[in-house]
């Protein structure tokens, strides 16, 4: 999987960083998503999919 993040759409709610802190962080400047690991291991796949689903702004997507 490959994670795509659109910081122009992101509203900085932090659901991704809350759900998978190993993969997502937030910018100190405006709180928008920072992808720490765009190609996470299979062991984190379920959590990453949940983070994508929880994202309130639709800023996250997954390319298989």
């Amino acid at each position: 999987m490959k994670i795509k993040a659109d910081t122009g759409v992101c509203v900085g709610a932090g659901m991704c960083a809350l759900t998978v802190p190993e993969v997502f962080d937030q910018s100190d400047d405006d709180g928008t998503v920072v992808v720490l690991d765009p190609d996470p291991p299979a062991s984190r796949e379920a959590a990453v999919r949940r983070a994508v689903q929880l994202c309130p702004s639709g800023a996250l997507s997954i390319e298989e």
Partner: peptide
């Protein structure tokens, strides 16, 4: 407005 504030309310902060 929101973008001016979101950096202050991150999970890490």
């Amino acid at each position: 407005f929101r973008k001016l504030l979101t950096g202050q309310f991150t999970v890490r902060r």
